[in-house]
Amino acid sequence: MKRHLLSAADLDLGDATLILDTAAQIDAALAGREVKKLPTLRGRTVVNLFFEDSTRTRISFELAAKRLSADVINFAAKGSSVSKGESLKDTALTLEAMGADAIVCRHSASGAPHRLAEWVQGSVINAGDGTHEHPTQALLDAYTIRRRLGRLDGVRVTIVGDVLHSRVARSNVLLLDTLGAQITLVAPPTLLPVGIGSWPVEVSYDLDAVLAKADVVMMLRVQQERMNASYFPSAREYSRRYGLDARRMAVLPEDAIVMHPGPMNRGMEIAAEVADSVRSTIVEQVSNGLSVRMAVLYLLLGGDSK
């Protein structure tokens, strides 16, 4: 495996399978234990460098590192020297001088973790950069699908919503394609990126037409903070055409699952009764995220990091 995890495209089939298998073994090793703690990364330091708000990703990485006995430093841009004008590079070099073995970075600028990786000695893990990538989310989604359906090869995954701004969609397309899944993207034409024709996916504008053939439906969040250019006429119209409600869920094949990376807008892209149904893996995805991030930290940091 490479030293950093910057993009889901960094992972070939062997790497991705190793991460998923490792996560499964960690899950099994910790199942039913009172003390869910492993000594593996004792003495290592993991810095959570978050320039953008996050609940689940930051907490998940923090808990994953702590379960492996690493020391964790949480760095939020607010309240730090960044607000005095310190650059990304200087911030990173400062953290490294303090002995960080890994930097988990979230940034609103696409590509920020890639730049970071050029400056520091330790491992850099991309925890979401702008509208670009979020590889550990894709890994935990793949892990969730494999646990529920027992396989990834040939699984038909439909990803619905704001693909244009979604780093979750981008990473999922790259990773799930590597793992052999068949991907269909569904979105209004305004929310599909330019160049989608070169992606290894099928594209549809009509959700109802594809649901009957989906083993997995992954709903993307409508990112209100990025909805500043009239991508669709109204929230109600979006919800009616691209929202997953009980009527649409009934069309899905029997074992199909419904996923959402969170945070969700109940009533917008996903109806509350769908989010709370037995098909929904939304809560599972969160706990699976912990195992997958432990696996990533172990594989990147467990050995000699130099």
Partner: peptide, 10 residues
């Protein structure tokens, strides 16, 4: 692990 590297889990 540090000196001999990570290995797959069983």
């Amino acid at each position: 692990l540090r000196s001999r590297g990570v290995r797959p889990l069983s």
